[in-house]
């Protein structure tokens, strides 16, 4: 074993890349849960985003269009969940699970002809001036654009939720849907929009896996990333700042584990591969103190 083979600069740089798909999916789910909806279908929307993004990118040759396609794909899929839970008043846990199972099947079917193809490359950008700073430059400022877009989305979500009127309405809907309804806010519409946003973000996260991180399409490639994103929302106590922290922490565990594999630690690869999941459980145990939005997961049926 040779731990000195782990380069700290590379380690922190790849940490940011490893955290990005989870960050994207989790920030979307955070908005959904703040609106009082528990969508357990993140995994299904992510993998559907991964395959639609990949197909669009291969067909057009443009990763940017791929990401847009992935966001649209995830949002469309999320609307099935939205329609069932908001209009047909189905159980959110069961519907979310159905969405995951459906998404896994759908993506495998769609991606059939795309196995083994390489995605068009998505070059890193070298941020002028900042990218030249020693140590910090290569760690923070020499990534592909989606790393920064993910962070921008997180900041935008924070601003929206806590500094805008629409965000206040969304939180009100999530805290107490009956009161929000009585005040004249449209609970259903707010939630449908939140669900669509969550789907789009999950789609982006999935596409980041298939277009940048891997970058290939394989069946079931999200391997639980969507569920980890759900766990990180709980870890973050539904706060965007802590969510970014949680995603980076998770990225750190993933990269460390991969680095240890490469360094030839005397532990079989399979046991090292368990670590992200075990870390997620540990984090859930330690951080289960946060208070969830008041109406989370409850069915809203407007009495008249």
């Amino acid at each position: 074993m040779d731990l000195s083979s782990i380069n700290p600069i590379l380690f922190f740089a790849s940490l940011m890349v490893a955290a990005t798909p989870i960050l994207l999916a989790a920030i979307g789910e955070l908005v959904v849960e703040r609106a009082g909806v528990l969508n357990l279908g993140v995994e299904g929307m992510m993998i559907t985003g991964a395959v639609t993004g990949f197909i669009v990118a291969v067909a057009t040759g443009s990763p940017w269009l791929g990401f847009i396609g992935a966001a649209i794909g995830g949002a469309i899929l999320s609307q099935i969940f939205g329609f069932l839970t908001q209009y047909l008043l189905s159980n959110q846990v069961a519907t979310g699970l159905a969405l995951t199972l459906f998404g896994l099947g759908l993506s495998a079917l769609m991606g059939q002809g795309y196995i083994g193809i390489k995605a068009p490359s998505f070059p890193d950008i070298h941020v002028p001036v900042l990218g030249d700073i020693p140590v910090i430059g290569p760690i923070v400022f020499q990534h592909d654009p989606m790393v920064y877009i993910g962070l921008l989305i997180a900041i935008a979500v924070w601003f929206f939720l806590f500094r805008s009127r629409a965000g206040l309405v969304l939180r009100a809907v999530g805290e107490n849907h009956d009161a929000a309804h009585a005040l004249g806010y449209n609970v259903r519409r707010t939630r449908m929009l939140a669900i669509a946003f969550g789907g789009a973000c999950a789609g982006l996260g999935g596409a980041y896996l298939s277009l940048v991180r891997v970058p290939q399409w394989t069946e079931g490639m999200t391997a639980g990333a969507g569920w980890i994103a759900l766990a990180i929302v709980v870890f973050a106590s539904w706060r965007p700042g802590r969510l970014v922290l949680g995603a980076y922490l998770f990225g750190g565990v993933t990269v460390l584990q991969l680095n240890l594999q490469a360094a030839g630690v005397a532990i079989p690869v399979e046991y090292l591969s368990m670590s992200p999941y075990l870390a997620t459980i540990a984090v859930l145990v330690i951080m289960s103190a946060g208070r969830s939005p008041g109406s989370l997961g409850r069915i809203f049926h407007a009495a008249r």
Binding site: G105, S107, A108, L109
Partner: peptide, 8 residues
């Protein structure tokens, strides 16, 4: 995969 889709 079509069967998984059908089940979902």
């Amino acid at each position: 995969a079509a069967i998984n889709l059908l089940q979902g």
